[in-house]
Design a protein around this nucleic acid. Structure first.
Lengths: 158, 158
DNA sequence: TCTGAAAATGTATTAAT
DNA sequence: ATTAATACATTTTCAGA
């Protein structure tokens, strides 16, 4: 079981990598010199390791906008049942819709799941009525509204 | 309808803000000087605006780890039905579990929805059997596995 | 580790509302 | 009076050997 560490799809991060990530998870613009100082390594070490992790697709340093602050107040999950031979076609249409932020193929009664963001319930109902329900091949839909987020933690290092 | 622009919960970004965000969504460490140059404004303008947007909770500049690259290969959504008077209590237990990345109160048959990340199906089954099903007050669960992500777009500016 | 170049920050100043 | 922009001086950070 331990050989998992040497697989290329699972990059095992050493302690220095992990510490670097912890700082950058909080502040993507933290100066490398400051991180280096805190960890007792050279600035170069930090710079090289960050570049390597970005290169390997392990770490991204990005700006993220808070959707609520720009007026996208309503988050909804839509479970979709589709005629099996038309899934590809339906997905390609869904991909083009800007309200649809995330699409996945899933197990269960409804093979597609969408994460949908809209300004308000008017826009949501407009989306469901005029976009979703107009797609050919959609069988049944199950719409679940997010009322309140109770936890959201997407930083991975401790 | 246009007065929506002057509400404090909905910070309307002007064109310069939007352009800044577009650059930072791609690269949180892009030098302010470079952004300023591209937009034809001073570096200080960019710096102040970024600070202001961060202050207002509109924009965060963060490092994000690709879960798959660190061995978290299985994403699962769990819909939970809970005895109504025990929701708070159940949520507070779920919050402590590191597999549970995200919790929301939702409409529909199952009032709680969880986003769960695990290394593999063994860990998932362990989580369901030994953690989830041990919580007092949980009524029914509906477990939906993510088989394949078809779209993921969480940058908001165009 | 060092070093020149680049970038970020602080202060003072001005303009606009 | 407050906010936002600029210019410039100083400090910090970056990226190469």
């Amino acid at each position: 079981m331990e050989d998992i560490k040497n697989n290329s799809w699972c990059h095992e991060l050493d302690e220095i990598d992990r510490q670097i990530v912890i700082f950058l998870e909080k502040n993507a613009r933290m100066p490398f010199t400051k991180i280096a100082e805190k960890l007792g390594v050279s600035e170069r070490t930090v710079r090289i390791r960050v570049a390597q992790m970005q290169e390997d697709g392990i770490l991204s340093l990005v700006g993220v906008v808070n959707p609520i602050k720009v007026g996208l107040n309503v988050q909804t999950f839509v479970h979709l049942s589709v005629q099996p031979n038309r899934i590809e076609e339906v997905v390609s249409q869904l991909k083009e819709m800007e309200e649809v932020r995330w699409i996945a193929l899933t197990t269960g009664e409804y093979p597609l799941m969408l994460d949908v963001l809209t300004r308000d319930y008017d826009d949501l109902s407009d989306f469901v009525m005029n976009k979703l329900n107009k797609i050919e091949g959609v069988d049944r839909t199950n719409v679940v509204n997010v009322l309140k987020k109770m936890k959201s933690r997407f930083n991975f290092m401790r």
